[in-house]
Nucleic acid binder design. Structure first.
Lengths: 144, 144
DNA sequence: TTTTTAAATGCTATCCATTTGCATTTAGAC
DNA sequence: GTCTAAATGCAAATGGATAGCATTTAAAAA
């Protein structure tokens, strides 16, 4: 995708095939992926890329705000997705790890209140809801 | 502390000196501690306890809701504290990792809205604000 | 286009928080 | 006190992530 090259230019990163590959996979998957997920998907595309390169690329992207991360509660891995332009919150399924993005932010006012109350200079916040998605509510016991 | 023994009884866990020690340290520290922090503090008290025991005790406590965990963004370690009775949110300093607990929850209504909108069965949520505490705003560059 | 060079990559070894296996000890029921 | 399951210590293993270093490559300079 042509816009990916623009992103890399803007971020002052060289336009390498590996970086474009990582962007492609994240874009078409449109979901959170671990470094290892990306590694396997790359392999599946017959791409030759080492896991450490993936980690390095992801670090670059996070630093440049091209990619954002999330913590699933039940695993130690870090998950990555293309950064959303807009600030968003999440519904995270404790069974299948599916993530639903919520638009809009209900706590702007609250943030200002606590910021001044505690003289705390707030840079960002996370608001994540954990529970069970519609599918997993039905087939309760099946682990994915 | 006597009430700690009650907690263990309620949780159906044996009242061992190690478990009481971990509770003591968490109580008097009144802050988030990593497993290793606990290990060092125990050593400092001349207590003989192995790191793996600490991990096992913390796992027990988390399972029984005696202890709760938090993710600091800038480290891979898990941090633990005595569980607060009341649901609370956090202000987390990106410089010194200090955590301020916020009482009350501003998003009950929002939670219900998204829960029914997405037919998502929400079990719990996290709301954490990251930024710089009053102290660290002043002495900007000093890492703790 | 060719040359040049700093950035990017592959491979391997390493780190480090956490977990596990197993023999030993201990809390607490009897 | 005796007994047994639970708890513990120690050492090794695990697993995600990182670092070192030689090689390759993007892209600026000539």
């Amino acid at each position: 995708m042509e816009k990916f090259k623009d992103w890399l230019t803007e971020a002052n990163l060289k336009k390498t095939k590996h970086r474009l590959l990582v962007l492609d996979i994240l874009y078409e998957t449109n979901d959170f992926l671990s470094a290892d997920d990306l590694f396997l998907k790359a392999k599946h595309k017959d791409a030759n890329i080492s896991l450490s390169t993936i980690y390095r690329i992801l670090d670059n992207f996070v630093e440049k705000n091209i990619v954002s991360t999330i913590n699933m509660e039940n695993t130690k891995q870090v998950y990555y997705e293309l950064a959303h332009q807009e600030h968003s919150h999440h519904l995270i399924c404790l069974n299948c790890n599916k993530v639903i993005h919520l638009k809009g932010c209900p706590i702007k006012a609250y943030e200002e209140t606590v910021s001044s109350k505690y003289r705390f200079n707030i840079e960002r916040h996370t608001l994540d809801f954990y529970g069970y998605c519609e599918k997993c509510q039905n087939k309760k016991s099946s682990k994915v």
